[in-house]
Design a protein around this nucleic acid. Structure first.
Lengths: 191, 191, 191, 191
DNA sequence: ACTTAACCGAGACGGTACGTCGTGTCTTGGT
DNA sequence: ACCAAGACACGACGTACCGTCTCGGTTAAGT
């Protein structure tokens, strides 16, 4: 739900809404997240929220994006194992923090809202998947990894355990754990 | 004065509620699932729902369990790869059907309800995880797999891609895809 | 807007709403009268108001009726002038009190709501008009008044000055004033 | 530093607003009359309405005045009965048309707005009352009418039935009806 | 002819109330 | 005793207008 072109949109209200949304969801969880609550905490009329976003989930998505915008391209030191380990550590740390709570909330919301699901995929998942897949393709070309596996499948194998823990809550997400799992995945993919 | 366990619970109402819940969630999604809707479709008073379950999610969990109760123990043909492939095929087929929709709904609900999350883990995840981990331990003992990896970690590696697709919706869940991913995981775990 | 047959209607909520409505309208005027305010003061959910009345004006009408139900039949002492004077004094006193404020509010509301207008006519105006007209017809038969004027026209002549002052607010409604006006009307109607 | 009275008011916007107001109130009634609707129909910004009038009712009052400005002084043919009949016919015809709808709307609005009520009295009611009362005083001096009744009371008696029908809607306002009522009133007032 | 400031349309803003929906509890008959 | 039906207090929904507030863009004085 990218908001319409900001014609004469109030920057301060916009920002206050994103901040308020983040705080509300961290405090009260997704079920306790309310457009009314967001507007009240942001000191804004409800209409101002509805004017620019179609649902509370869309606000939440933008609030999340606003905090993770920088994470764009993938490192390339020539050592794919190290590069992946570095990335997965960062993601693990993010998901173990408030960011994880918010992201989980977003995924929950997406389940009843196909448009939101599509937006999450397009804005959050795909860019990162693509960057990672590109790096993996280079590693395959360099002979570091088997070339007979679709890089997108590798991305799935590498990141899936993170989401598994995030969603099922079987065990907490810890960076060392996730790196171990990464090692095991890579063990089956070497050239 | 010892009351008979389930006092005078109406079996027919109970069943009608589970059926109605399943249909409602498949038709309208989790967000459109309502105790009122369930009661109305089941031809039952709301109170009858509230009497036996704490929340709509709990009903949904029981509705799911009622449809998957049989799946309890893990096959053991002596060939761990074949056994895992068989299991994962079954799970993939289940999650690709209405069952997947309902399970996804349940996970969404669990995100705002720690008790439900705990119930899902205990009733759905852990028994299956345990059964699978036991089978994996036997395979390790038989020298089919590396013994230096916690079987629970292996379960995570093996099933995570399924949940990844279920939750993120990046690509549809297909049994052959999931078997390919399984092969790659196992490639890194052979003794 | 006669409320639907009170199937299992809560008598206490019903009453609290009527009381609250009266107080609210007296305190804040018709423009300040709010279903939300009524519900809050009555300690009742908004839905409970909407369940039984189609609009705030309908509640107000019933609140008014609840306070004037007794005023039904017309005295008959054999002296039409005295009987009319007695009645008009009572009405003047009522309209000069809080009742006037409420009644005026009701008329204002009726202006944008034809159904309410109809209800006011049927429940408030017509019964009283009819009773008065009947008494006037007897007076005509008894030779006290000209028989060539429709009694309903006489009712109009007799009561119109009251409404004139109520609505236009040119001068306050006072019982002696209204009796003087009555005298002048009757002066033209003697047999 | 004395600003020229109506500084640089746009005559066309002003007029468009009055027209739009009249049309809106006739179409949708007073309750459906909104400043937003007026501004939109007049092709004008809301601010332009608020700049010149304190409320929608004030606009309505001016819109009404703009259509009835001419009606100023009272005829004097020497026959008070004929003069009153002529006047009342005109008023009845006006009130039976769209003008009645608008005037009724205005009275409704005045009920929650004492300032508006005062304005209506001063601008609409009193000038006409005064003109009529003056003519009546002359009639009393000429011996056409009893001199022991305050002319303002007579105005009230004469016009009240009109307002009675306008507000209560018991019967439609028709010029012949109103003239009959006038006759009966005058019957009691002859010298 | 050229500033320059009031006025214009448009419409975003913080608010209040709307009338509706669903929650979870409570009450009333009926079986 | 338990049930269906549904009223109840409550809280959030998404919408409509309120009256105030910028925004540029005319437009008519007053130089």
């Amino acid at each position: 739900m990218t908001p319409p072109e900001p014609r004469r949109r109030s920057a301060s209200a916009h920002l206050a809404i994103l901040e308020a949304t983040w705080e509300e969801v961290v405090e009260k969880g997704y079920a306790g997240l309310t457009v009314e609550g967001i507007a009240a905490r942001a000191g804004v009329g409800k209409q101002t929220v509805y004017r620019w976003w179609p649902s509370k989930a869309a606000v939440l998505l933008e609030a999340l994006n606003a905090r993770t915008a920088q994470t764009s391209d993938f490192p390339d030191t020539g050592d794919i194992a190290a590069d992946l380990a570095g990335q997965i550590t960062g993601v693990a740390e993010f998901l173990a923090s408030d960011g994880g709570v918010v992201f989980k909330a977003l995924l929950a919301g997406a389940q009843s809202d196909p448009e939101l699901a599509e937006d999450i995929r397009r804005q959050v998942i795909e860019p990162r998947t693509q960057a990672c897949a590109d790096r993996l393709a280079k590693a395959q070309a360099a002979g570091e990894l088997r070339a007979d596996v679709d890089p997108v499948d590798i991305v799935e194998l590498v990141y899936a355990p993170l989401y598994y823990r995030l969603i099922l809550g079987t065990r907490p997400i810890s960076a060392p754990d996730m790196r171990h799992q990464l090692d095991r995945v890579l063990a089956g993919l070497r050239a």
